[in-house]
Design a protein around this nucleic acid. Sequence first.
RNA 1: GCGGCUGUAGCUCAGCGGAUAGAGCAUCGGUCUUCGGAACCGAGUGUCGGGGGUUCAAAUCCCUCCAGCCGCACCA
Length: 571
Amino acid sequence: MTSTYDTLLSRLQSAFDTLEEGADPVLRTSDRSDYQANGVMALAKRLGRPPRDVAEEILGRAELSGVAAVEIAGPGFLNLTLSPEFLAEQLTGLRDDDRLGIEAVTQTKTVVIDYSAPNVAKEMHVGNLRSTVIGDALARMYRFAGHHVVARNHVGDWGTPFAMLIEHLLDSGEGDDATLSIGDLDAFYKEARTKFDADDSFKERSRSRVVALQSGDPETLRLWRVIVDQSIAYLDLVYRDFGVTLTPNDVVGESFYNNMLSDVVTDLAAAGLIVESGGALCVFPPGFTNRDGEALPLIVRKSDEGFGYAASDLAAVRDRVDNLHADEMLYVVGVPQAQHFEMVFAVARMAGWLPERVRCEHVTFGNVLGPDRKMFKSRSGETVKLASLLGEAIERADAALQERNSDLDDAARTQLAVEIARAAIKYADLSTDRHHDYIFDLDRMIAFEGDTGPYLQYAHARLRSIFRRLGTPWESPVVAFSLDTPQERHLALGLLAFPEAFEASLATLQPHRLCVYLFDLAQRLTAFYDACPVLTSEGVLRDQRLALCDLAARTLSIGLSVLGIDAPEKM
RNA sequence: GCGGCUGUAGCUCAGCGGAUAGAGCAUCGGUCUUCGGAACCGAGUGUCGGGGGUUCAAAUCCCUCCAGCCGCACCA
């Protein structure tokens, strides 16, 4: 079905086109009418005519009869009020559409989304939260839109940190390495790090160990494998706990690109892009300077002949374009890496590895802050582990559920607590503009009131309970939606706006737009719910209201699931 | 120094070229003998960091200043 917005837009567009080809009607939802078109003023300006005049002419040419009533207001706004017939028709269209008006794309693209990317030797912590949550939401949204998503979890399983770990492992005696738990590894990593920072000879040995790793020394690789295997198994558990779609198959870490790194250098050299500087092999993409105003290099091979992460990132670009046939590549990585990615993309373009047709974007995000507005840390000043974050959220959700003395048994209640906890954490992360930092406040995000994940889940569960109370399976009858109360109409308009909200959210890679939409819908819903009796109403009115409830429940369910948030049937 | 990001109601955040700047929380006041009250309705508060400029129209675009955060060659 054609969405309400698209229908209006195309009608208006035809009329605008007759005055100036391609003139933008600037169609928006409105608080003064259902929709408003603001494009007349700009057009009139270009035409050198009085705006209201132009508005009249557009009105005369737009085929809107049966669709919307239009009024010219103020300097030349077009205020559109949807006709009852059109509203009813659109709602009927939604009723029969599993996708609620969101059409699957006709051209399926292969979209490679690089996200999460923890370090395999460490436990996952808040620093990994946003990439994981935002990336997973984008992956789900792309899939729903009908694209082919290839998730890549570019874990840090290579290079100096790993060399450092192996070196430390040798120092302290390997022992029964097969029993190294991830908790041990985390402590182990910290020890190694401390030693690396304090001890120059250890640092040197680590650097040589990188080379051994990169050149495939068997003993080095054996130790490496031990650590990696355990880490991947651990990561999988965390992703499952959080309801993240990443699997071990998506783990394609830095190590994967190891055997492509020398080709990166050779091919860059062949293209005449490599410059040696201070013993390192570099590419100088134009437009990047350091603090002294000198050209800034992208170091592809370090002076110790080890490869840096620029090399593996370049190899990854080639792999994704050549072997995965990516039409679009997203890197969900924090903003501090902005310059690095700009340089990598620039070099890839210079080398001809990244064709113009491939959209390649660094999807940045801000920091997670504590209540003091500084980087979120535990009371003791340590980074907070995702497992403990979720654990605490689950405890609180569970406690809240127990207070409501529901009829759930322990197992069901615990499961529900998990779903609520995930929703709280994910929604808090997704619902603000990803560019901004946000303050992590568990009390607020897990509240059942306000703009929170649990509130949206509850809105959905309330609807589902209505249908449960019916006692018999309900199938939406053909109803003539008449929408006689303002709340019904308001809700209906909200339901019809789902496609544009979804599409805008996806097009801008900003999941928070979908969150804003869903919260607004939930508010319309509760207002409706309060003003319009459903089960106690009768006849066609009851059918109509049930149909609205059904649509709202489906919209919330799809909207939440596409964000990676569960929509429980019962709360 | 250069570059980037951020500065909107007491707090947390939407809005990013359109008509009186919105929501949640908190505060205050109401509603309803609940189709699940984990509800609804109403009220108040804003130099949209400051100052210039562009525009019929600026929180939104440009310049500048202030404040804060981040990045700026061999750690990823």
